[in-house]
Amino acid sequence: MMCSHMYRILKNKRSWLSFCIVLCIPFFEIVQLLMYQKNSNEVFHPAFAFFLTGSSIGHAPQIMLIWFLPIYFLMLVADDPIQDYQTGYRYILISKIGKKKYVLHKMLLSFVLSFVTMLVALAVNFMTVSIIFSGGTFTKGVMDLNIEDNTLFQFSVNHPYIAILVFSIISCFMSGLAGLLGSSMSLFFLDRKYAYAASFLVWFLMILKRDSIVYLFQPFTEYGLGVLVPTILFAKFVFLLIAIFVFVYEVKYNES
């Protein structure tokens, strides 16, 4: 089932469009940074030119990608249960492998593909900035900052590559959760109109709240572990709770 699902995604132009957009948005950051350093002799440090660091003015590419992550992943993979429902393929699959496996497969594949898509986008971006900004040292003054009570910031400044690696893994994990949220909503509503709206609403409330999940995507910020750890735990709790609720409802109670 996993193979057929993957095959369907690989043959779907909509999924490819979404994948390409996720892959291309970080490149706008590079263009902005090149425009920024055009009139000076300074070259950005590769870790600070990395997409997640957000050194550009306005943070446009970051906003366009991170704020609407569930929408991209719904288009890519997570709204597949709705297509299954519309074509009737859902019932064939459920009668072949059972509802528990069906729901688990959909959720797992959404998580994995969203994780991998983000990983590919960030890896490609890192390779590109490493080539374009090779040997650069400009950090917009971040390296000179000294926030003594923030161990995470001090560690990030001392080990910038480890910092961006850790934040990249966290970002990929959050992307996986965004995909999981999308597939949970698709499995629950079985209607694109509701699934997209509900996924956006949950994700957006997590962005707008006081300790926003956006902080988890950006290294070299003033937010320390005291802010980031509760934020990631809360986000994980909310997204997993939704997924578990949908799983239990679909497997135990939903007889359709």
Binding site: R14, S18, G58, I63, M64
Partner: peptide, 23 residues
């Protein structure tokens, strides 16, 4: 002919236009 693609494209257009004007 797909509401979700239209949804996505509108969002992208409005978002990009906003940043074009801003930057």
């Amino acid at each position: 002919r797909q509401s979700n693609v239209a949804f996505f494209l509108t969002l992208l257009l409005v978002g990009l236009w906003f940043f074009m004007e801003k930057l």
